[in-house]
């Protein structure tokens, strides 16, 4: 039996042909296996119906100056703030270098009177207060997260409390003067 063991076959006249065949067979098996795995992995990616819900269009016309609106996008709340001039001014006058996450207000808005952000605190994921009338907006007139006390200003930037980053601005664009498409 040992003389038939694979490792001791001398490579010779038939040897190279057998090696080529085995190599090709092994390569085919490898390629086949690799290609076969992809559908299993890709099936875990978002399905077409999930992707179809990946953009949300929001009509801004009913949101008056000074009003804030919450809409859902990809399962998360989006804060839309139709900022009055005092809020815009307060946001633009802040010394950017003193911020924990330095970002000028101009980098966070496309039109200064409209602030659009994902309403999820960057600390541990609670939804900050401030978007409903009567909510506590915190000392900067922005948003206040009740879970661990993170405080955001009128540009949604972190000013006090444990959150490391500003409230995230999602990708969006104005499809008209009074409508945006998020995502």
């Amino acid at each position: 039996m040992t003389d038939l063991a694979h490792s001791q076959i001398p490579a010779g006249h038939g040897g190279t042909r057998r090696d080529f065949l085995l190599l090709t067979a092994g390569a085919l098996a490898g390629v086949g296996a690799a290609v076969s795995i992809w559908p299993f992995i890709d099936s875990l990616n978002p399905a077409r119906d999930t992707l179809a819900l990946s953009t949300t269009e929001v009509d801004l016309a009913p949101v008056k100056v000074g009003q804030r609106l919450t809409v859902a996008w990809r399962g998360k709340p989006i804060f839309v703030d139709h900022r009055p001039p005092e809020e815009i001014k307060a946001a633009q006058e802040v010394d950017v270098a003193s911020l924990r996450d330095p970002q000028p207000d101009s980098a966070r808005v496309k039109k200064p009177e409209w602030l659009v952000m994902i309403g999820v605190c960057t600390h541990l994921g609670c939804i900050p207060l401030g978007n409903k009338t009567g909510d506590d907006r915190g000392p900067f007139g922005g948003w206040f997260c009740p879970c661990h006390g993170s405080i955001y200003d009128t540009s949604g930037r972190i000013r006090q409390g444990p959150a490391p980053l500003n409230l995230v601005v999602p990708p969006y664009e104005f499809t008209s003067d009074t409508a945006i498409k998020i995502g």
Partner: peptide, 9 residues
Amino acid sequence: IAIGIFYAA
């Protein structure tokens, strides 16, 4: 093709 190669092997 794989059948051919594997059979030859």
